[in-house]
Simulated scan of single mutants.
Amino acid sequence: MNQVIEFTKASQLKAKPEPSVLGFGKYFTDHMFIMDYNEESGWHAPRIAPYEPLMLDPSALVFHYGQAVFEGLKAYRANDGRVLLFRPDKNIRRLNETLHRMCMPTIDEELLLDGLKQLLEIEKDWVPSAEGTSLYIRPFVLATEPFLGVRPSKSYKLLIILSPVGAYYAGQLTPVKIYVEDEYVRAIQGGVGHVKTSGNYAASLLAQKKAEHLGYDQVLWLDAKEKKYVEEVGSMNIFFKIKGEIVTPSLNGSILSGITRDSVITMLKSWGVPVREERISIEEVYEAYLRGELEEVFGTGTAAVISPVGELNWNDHRMIINENQTGPFSKRLYDEITQLQYGLTKDTFGWTIEIK
């Protein structure tokens, strides 16, 4: 798809925030990527324009029937000043899978990657260089047709916005506390739990609020049918180290196929570490804990990369993992992946792309 990406420069540029105040998702760059869709022209008018509010009709279908999807990835500043992307092709491919499931038009992947690269070239100075910081990238698509009938929209808007961020959790490798949710459910096989659509996250908020009230950082979801089998954490896929083996729930149609999850599995196998993707019940996890065989638990995701778990609470059974300390596998995985992302080690997997 040969489409020229037009660029309109912002008339006034923002002051860049200090690294110490970044947090997550609070600040946004000067420009964003935009593209529109209608049935006559398909995806068209790719452009980079000043970051500004959107104007949508109050009857736009996104507000009423939830056709909204998104992705999340990052750009990193290497010590030598280069800007690196980590496996963006996987995120773009997953975006198309999500669009297909949500009855929304898929996008030319090369065009979208080219648009992202051009946006990053313009906004290079927004990629922070302090340790642990990065530029978060949020592509998203929403239905824009003004209509109140229940059907797929006939028009859409795609945007990519950028946000300089610090660590997702305060104290990046400080173990988090996880509450195993046994009342609410997030997704079921045949639904949309395996894709990044906004409603998935809205459905998780009440349980997350409940967990926080109880003193926990995140929720671990169980399957919707039996409330027995482990699925994923609110913002992460989950891994267990049991008797030297790494176990993670298999992708079953209600679990997100995380890019970091895939990277971890590939990396562990390259180390010769046994990895099993299979259905695992929370009872099996608890029994392994009672036997002293549950050695580590960690989550994986774009935002946190690797997040060690120091405590699991299931039916008031408190499992303290590795004496609430970061385990050696969690630490090694975090170090190896972040060194790749920041260009500190040779990329033997071919995962990083430099922004020229």
Score class of each variant (00 low, 15 high):
F70S: 05
A75W: 00
L61Y: 09
T98I: 01
Q118L: 09
T106E: 10
V69M: 02
N96L: 10
M102C: 04
R77V: 02
E123M: 03
R87Q: 05
M104F: 07
N91L: 05
T98Q: 06
V62G: 07
G81E: 07
F63Q: 09
Y65E: 11
N79D: 14
L61C: 12
V62D: 00
R77Y: 02
L84K: 08
P88L: 01
L99Y: 04
A78R: 07
H64D: 00
L56S: 03
K90T: 10
P105C: 10
P58T: 01
Y76A: 05
D89W: 03
H64V: 00
L84R: 09
L56H: 02
Y76P: 06
R82N: 14
P58G: 00
E123T: 09
G72D: 06
N91I: 05
Y65C: 12
Q118M: 13
E121T: 14
N79G: 13
L111H: 14
L119K: 08
V62N: 12
L99P: 05
E109N: 12
L61D: 03
V69P: 01
N96E: 04
Q67L: 10
K74P: 01
L84N: 01
E71M: 04
G115M: 00
K90Y: 12
I92W: 08
E71R: 02
L95M: 13
L73Q: 05
E110K: 13
D57N: 13
G66M: 00
L116N: 01
D80N: 15
E110P: 15
L112S: 11
F70P: 03
V69E: 10
I122L: 15
P58S: 00
D114I: 15
T98L: 01
P105E: 05
L113G: 09
L120I: 11
E109Y: 11
P88T: 06
L84H: 06
Y65V: 11
A78F: 06
F63V: 07
R101D: 08
S59M: 11
